[in-house]
Design a protein around this nucleic acid. Structure first.
Length: 571
RNA sequence: GCAGCUGUAGCUUAAUUGGAUAGAGCAUUCGGCUACGAACCGAAAGGUUGCAGGUUCAAGUCCUGUCAGCUGCACCA
């Protein structure tokens, strides 16, 4: 449809004697909200002053003078709008043939030409269980990474583990004091987290404990063998638990280089800033001054230690060398907006302009409970594993109830349960806070992941029953004019906009655009499915409708895959 | 206090970036399984887009003010 839009712009331009740039016309052409107003519309109001005529007269003039080609079926003038109706059979043929030829490549656009894009997401702090907050960055980050892959970029998924910092002094302190009270091998992360919480509490009450924690971390930094061994143990058991979850969620990372990895790479950052003369002393710390009324970015603290900003800068420098990225995306909650603003500002002193320009922070809203913020100390954290178990169990119960002939129930229950959770997190604008509501998250009907999965299952179920085999299809013998119901035409036009949607979702770092698109596709398909018989005695009609069903199945499967959601073959 | 984000139907939300009658899902009421899978489809009802001004042919969208919630604001990450 994009090229039709271009043609329309061209027609309008010649009809009004070239007074306006093609670009301006093109940018004004819109897709009407109501399909009764056609496939494209051009509002003539802004021409009114220029041409000194009423919008309606202008529209009528254009209509008189325009030279149509056969892409356009009809033009109508309504209230100063010029409404264009495209030739549906043309579109159907183009779209379905395209999908049929491209198959699962449909939607791919090689805009990136293999250039590297880093996506930094998930990044849990080790020695703590994975909770709902980590889930959001993981799911959103992966979707963004997949979207950029679909645009021809080579994406590098980086899990920047929180595996270093003062907190480990406390973790070690807690471990030393309380380890005998726990069965660590059974549930290492909850045990460690609990010890940490207790040590944290002690340290707040007793300055002596805090001092010991500081000392612990200092020893760790200085390479104390016993503590290093302990740290490595914490990291290993943590990763082992995380891998289980990532496996379940089907998440893969290209790098697990966390903060510790940059421990020996920060001096260079300090040196560069120093050499450029932007590193100044302030209140005993070494900082880079930023705006007039803004706090400076602290690089070295007054007691001589580095800080998270320093590590982030070291990571940026390292990633320019390792990956030569055109874009480097950070997916974190909006709490860190100012932090990244600072870091990106300072990065201009450290890396080439092109790398500094490629830095993008993608903030998302926070998960909160009806009672307030999640808090480890209050014991009000929701652990992902528990939620996954709930969702999978619910899916399993429904499967038992609805489909007793199912083949691989255990696996399909996982696909559905997890699909529901993931989709739920991706369907709304990421910047909005989400209030945790178990009933809402575990809904399987309406605008949910399972609804879309279910629609997919119906598509392939039909194709199977119809004996559809894409290898036996002669696309040239298909009569596309038989797809003439409103349901069919609308569905086809929706399928056509898939690549547009991918592009928009990637540009705006907004997976919800794709998620909502898939709801539209599923909903349009369901309507078509309900109103029209696919398997009929009219072999030509059956063939062309099967092709539509097939195209729908491809788009849904591909779309869900980008969001990180599996498509079961039955459910 | 300063800055940023959010505010749309009872609830969860959309609106192609300034366009036509603000569009969905859930919940409620009603209708549809001897048609390819009812985790579905259809219909009804539900709106002063937080509030007040302004710009514009046109404002949920832009500007100013204001209210509410959230987040950040120097050595935690």
């Amino acid at each position: 449809m994009e090229e039709v839009k271009l043609k329309i712009a061209d027609m309008i331009k010649s009809a009004i004697n070239d007074e306006i740039a093609l670009e301006d016309i093109l940018s004004k052409i819109e897709v009407p909200k109501d399909k009764k107003n056609g496939d494209f519309a051009y509002p003539c109001f802004n021409l009114s002053k220029l041409l000194k005529k009423s919008p309606v007269d202008i529209a009528n003039d254009i209509k008189e003078n325009i030279k149509l080609d056969n892409n356009i079926k009809e033009i109508q003038v309504v209230n100063g709008y010029l409404n264009f109706y495209v030739n549906d059979t043309d579109i159907s043929k183009k779209v379905l043939t395209n999908i049929f030829n491209m198959k699962e490549k449909y939607g791919f656009q090689n805009i990136g030409k293999g250039q590297n894009v880093c996506v930094d997401y998930s990044s849990p702090n080790i020695a703590k269980p994975f909770h709902l907050g980590h889930f959001r960055t993981t799911i959103i980050g992966r979707a963004i990474s997949n979207l950029y892959k679909e645009l021809g970029y080579n994406t590098i998924s980086i899990n920047y583990l929180g595996d270093w910092g003062r907190q480990f002094g406390l973790v070690i302190e807690g471990y030393k004091r309380f380890k005998d009270e726990y069965d660590i091998s059974n549930d290492p992360l909850h045990s460690l987290a609990d010890m940490y919480v207790r040590a944290n509490k002690l340290a707040k009450e007793d300055e002596e404990v805090m001092n010991m924690a500081r000392e612990n971390f200092k020893k760790l930094e200085d390479g104390n063998e016993e503590y290093l061994k302990l740290w490595k143990y914490f990291r290993d058991v943590s990763l082992k638990e995380y891998y289980k979850l990532y496996d379940l969620l089907n998440c893969k990372f290209d790098s697990y280089n966390g903060e510790a990895y940059y421990n020996d790479k920060m001096q260079e950052v300090i040196d560069i800033l120093d050499k450029k003369g932007v590193l100044v002393e302030s209140r005993g710390a070494k900082v880079v001054m930023l705006g007039e009324n803004e706090p400076p970015c602290i690089i070295v603290t007054s007691i001589g230690s580095t800080i998270y900003a320093t590590r982030d800068l070291a990571a940026i420098l390292d990633r320019t060398r390792q990956y030569d990225y055109v874009k480097s995306i950070y997916v974190t909650s909006y709490e860190q907006i100012n932090h990244f603003k600072q870091v990106f500002e300072v990065a201009k002193y450290i890396v080439d302009e092109k790398y500094a320009k490629g830095l993008v922070h993608v903030p998302y809203g926070m998960v909160r409970l009806k009672t307030g913020k999640m808090s480890t100390r209050e014991g009000t954290v929701i652990y992902l594993q528990d939620l996954l178990n709930d969702a999978i169990k619910k899916a399993d119960n429904i499967l038992v109830e609805k489909n007793n002939k199912i083949h691989d129930r255990e696996n399909i229950a996982k696909q559905i349960g997890i699909g529901a959770l993931v989709f739920n997190d991706l369907k709304t604008s990421k910047i909005k806070d989400v209030v945790f509501d178990l009933d809402e998250i575990l809904r399987f009907d309406g605008e949910t992941g399972p609804y879309i999965q279910y629609t997919y299952v119906r598509t392939i179920s039909i194709l199977k029953k119809a004996g559809f085999n894409e290898k036996n299809i002669d696309i040239n013998s298909i009569d596309f004019s038989m797809l003439n119901t409103e349901d069919e035409v609308e569905l086809i036009k929706k399928l056509d906009s898939f690549s547009d949607v991918i592009k928009r979702a990637a540009n705006e770092y907004e997976p919800s655009i794709l998620a909502r698109y898939l709801i539209d596709v599923a909903s349009l398909f369901s309507r078509f499915y309900n109103n029209s018989q696919v398997i009929t005695n009219d072999i030509n009609l059956k063939n062309v409708r099967c092709l539509l069903v097939y195209a729908t199945s491809i788009v849904i499967k591909k779309g869900l895959a980008i969001l990180g959601i599996d498509t079961p073959n039955e459910m």
